[in-house]
Design a binder for these strands. Structure first.
Lengths: 126, 126
DNA sequence: ACGCTAGGTTTCCGACAGGAACCAACAGGT
DNA sequence: ACCTGTTGGTTCCTGTCGGAAACCTAGCGT
């Protein structure tokens, strides 16, 4: 009746679930989007992504790097220069990510409108 | 230079960013996936989604409801029965969500493999 | 000698996730 | 009449995490 197969990533620790939890994160989607058009520097991302802190950006990039989605290229220059780039595996995410961002662009206003419209007192419990 | 337009949802509080942050969340993606095939009861989702607690499920559903993506239908029966269903707006998310879950199914193993393979000491700073 | 730049880490504190226990409402058994 | 089971939800407590600001490293220009 459920319509789902038994391996449908509902199991808490299956690889698919872990993969989703890796990218279903407040900053990860935006960072991946920022990387989707080619190599970008740390500082560029800081300036590009409004509201992110260096700490969270580094943390997010490290996690993606550890999972093989992002490659970190540090040049031995002064001042230091570091570029981040999607790996081939990471590049397979561009499609899904862009679908999400396109959806957000198309429906962001509707979602915000609902916040003001919905509050009819519906009484969730008694 | 950047290749991004100025409205490219990098601004911290633009509707697109808020919409992404609404669904880019540990549980939200899995819950939306659980709803993607039709109305589901609260208890069904609890049994279906490994690892989620009643509290987090309720919280996630309420947030989606407030943003107009999910509709809550409570039947006045005993014991109580509550069904959750995607709204038309919520249904527009099925495509993006399924792309994500398909990606996760296809690449989950690769992502986990990278965790064991990568740890070459790369020296991120000095 | 000093400050600037660029990437990163450390410190501190408030907020939130998560689990367990509790609550409400009524049907049905005894 | 009383107790129990079912279902959905909330409350309480604690550990962890996010976020801002300060600090660190290393060379180059002046």
């Amino acid at each position: 009746m459920s319509g789902f197969g038994p391996d449908d990533f509902f199991l808490a620790d299956c690889p698919a679930r872990l993969a989703v939890e890796l990218i279903a994160d407040k900053w990860t989607v935006v960072v991946l989007y920022g990387l989707s058009k080619g190599p970008v520097r740390h500082g560029e991302l800081i300036g590009l992504i409004g509201g992110i802190s260096r700490k969270m950006l580094t943390q997010t990039l490290r996690r993606l790097e550890a999972h093989g989605l992002v490659h970190r290229r540090a040049y031995s220059e002064v001042p230091p220069r570091v570029e981040y780039e999607l790996t081939p595996l990471g590049a397979t995410l561009i499609g899904p990510i862009h679908m999400l961002t396109e959806w957000a662009r198309a429906n962001g206003d509707a979602v915000l409108d609902a916040l003001d419209t919905d509050p009819e007192p519906v009484a969730h419990n008694g």
